[in-house]
């Protein structure tokens, strides 16, 4: 399974950025929390609208199965659902801590967006 985590930095010890579309990095890891890739999301950070949609497309292109983030708006959520990517929202701490919570089955899957559409 591939897991994408929105992050303030490029490593698995980086702290999670709660924003999906506008997080500076999206870290992609496998089940065992081995780093696969750290995507530089900076061009999205200052996007006007559609930042979440573009971020969703970015991780869908990399065949991610699960996204761990803080907040996920309605447009991003719709896009993620269409791509079959599951969402674990309200995550905090480091990338590693969040992935370990997944392993322990402590991350509920979101069935709806938990943020307003962001401009």
């Amino acid at each position: 399974m591939k897991i994408a985590v929105t992050s303030t930095g490029k490593t698995i010890e980086s702290v999670i950025d709660p924003r999906f579309g506008r997080a500076p990095f999206i870290v992609i890891v496998d089940d065992d929390c081995n780093l696969i890739e750290a995507i530089d999301n900076s061009k999205n950070v200052n996007a006007f609208r559609g930042a979440g949609i573009q971020a969703a497309k970015t991780i869908a292109d990399r065949k991610v199965d699960l996204l761990l983030t803080g907040r996920c708006g309605p447009n991003a959520f719709t896009t993620l659902q269409a791509a079959g990517i599951k969402v674990g929202a309200e995550q905090s701490g480091t990338v590693r801590e969040a992935v370990e919570r997944v392993k322990r089955n402590e991350v509920p899957l979101a069935d709806k967006p938990n943020a307003e559409a962001h401009w």
Binding site: V45, N46, A47, F48, R49, H118, W119
Partner: peptide
């Protein structure tokens, strides 16, 4: 134009 985009940037 694009004042909305600039607003988003300033807020961020």
């Amino acid at each position: 134009e694009n004042s909305g985009k600039l607003v988003a940037l300033v807020r961020n």
